[in-house]
Design a protein around this nucleic acid. Structure first.
Lengths: 241, 241
DNA sequence: TAGCGACTTTGACTTGGATCAAGCATGAGA
DNA sequence: TCTCATGCTTGATCCAAGTCAAAGTCGCTA
């Protein structure tokens, strides 16, 4: 909520994103050395802490970002305050909605995060110049659409228990600990965030987490540390397939 | 349900889509005459009647389509039969998810419809060749993503009454009768479809329709014919903005 | 014109999740 | 050490929407 750093003013942060290092495969990996050099002149690395609002619903868009570290939540809010998280973005996703001047939702850092900020005009010019970059972003848009539609099934047709299990499976799937049976991870979201993502209240989320714990499907430490003894079983609880 | 025509066998229907006529601005309008000619060799116009399944969840994708007339519903189904409609496509949308061999959802004609069917391989080659076509499809994907996220807010946070009103506003917005105050249209969906789209039951949909009617927000004739005396008021009932 | 099937509405009852209201932990600051 | 704020859990109660069951409506066919 307390936005110490505004992403829009890209000149605040001095550190320049030098090249497509491993974490930076969101966009740059498709560019020619010439384009990369051009991009480096304008891109800015930026660290933000959890809770920082990166852009508000209805605000003008001046930049896009590659997410280098952390989790960003995208949310929509109704006139009366009801809120729905409509997407989570993990590193190394590209963040932003090209070709639209005004943001249709708010973006907020769910965890401490690091971004590589790209000015809008520069990036849009590069999309026009590089078919490969365009294709890359096209594919990410399609993937996000797939995910959004999966989530529509979750929101529309699953019970609270299934919803919470679905969220845990989703977060687990974005954690590299892709071991077979068990996995452990830190939840990037508070109970309130989870509720906003699942279309539930915090009380219901809490109750279902407790129930999943008592049923032996998960273990919880310090509210955020989750251990899943059997991911398969949790996925079944989340609604199968 | 009874699929008399399978979209996959493009040779069944003799009529060839000759050119980018007005209704056919989904894809073809971006192509060069040479490419158009090439496309015309392979595209097929096809009429399907309401209820025809165009592709099933998990099936191999062999073609894409431009929708020339009618409404297509995209739906996901869970192992136990729970169903959620995750998108509606109206003419002149492009239908299909490029670059993925297997369909993540089912597509079914909600109304009688007419399609221009494009074989997958041909279209994907043309995307690679034409930056403008790629950009066009990229934009459609982004638009669909915007719509999906809007709908996530509806599914997650709105009451049954607001959901039904939202659907009516959505359908109204795809009807060219964009008069200011009032509008009239035919619902392309049955009560069961509406329920599947809104994450409700048919009974709840029916009750809310009745209540909206009794509140004077809509008039209903023959279940499907809707007259909205004041679209603005209905939009407010749908949750504002 | 009666009968059948698909679709819709309506009513009575149940229930899952929301709401309201305390408690409980943790950590920061005085 | 106390207090206060923040985030989470737990319990009691309520209500919106689901479930179950019947009855209308319409078109189709015999």
């Amino acid at each position: 909520m307390d936005a110490q750093l505004k992403i829009l003013d890209i000149h605040e942060v001095p550190l320049v994103c030098r090249a497509c290092d491993a974490r930076h495969n969101g966009v740059c990996s498709t560019l020619s050395p010439l384009q990369l050099n051009e991009l480096n002149k304008h891109s800015q690395r930026k660290a933000v802490e959890a809770g920082t609002e990166l852009i508000g619903q209805g605000q003008q868009v001046h930049s896009y970002s590659n997410i280098l570290r952390g989790v960003i939540k995208l949310s929509k809010i109704m006139a009366d305050g009801r809120q729905q998280i409509v997407g989570l973005q993990f590193a190394p996703d590209f963040m932003g909605r090209p070709f639209l001047g005004e943001s249709l939702m708010a973006a907020e850092a769910a965890t401490d995060a690091e971004l590589c900020v790209l000015p809008r005009k520069i990036l849009e010019r590069m999309i026009a110049e590089s078919a490969e970059l365009g294709s890359r972003l096209h594919n990410q848009a399609l993937t996000e659409l797939d995910e959004a539609r999966d989530w529509m099934l979750t929101l529309g047709r699953k019970s609270a228990r299934e919803k919470v299990a679905s969220l845990l499976v989703l977060v687990a799937s974005h954690t590299d600990g892709d071991q077979f049976g068990s996995c452990a991870f830190e939840l990037p979201l508070s109970r309130a965030d989870i509720a906003d993502f699942l279309g539930l209240t915090i009380e219901t989320v809490s109750r279902q987490m407790t129930k999943l714990r008592k049923d032996g499907l998960i273990q919880i430490e310090n509210n955020r540390q989750i251990f899943v003894p059997d991911l398969e079983k949790l996925a079944v609880t989340a609604g199968g397939d």
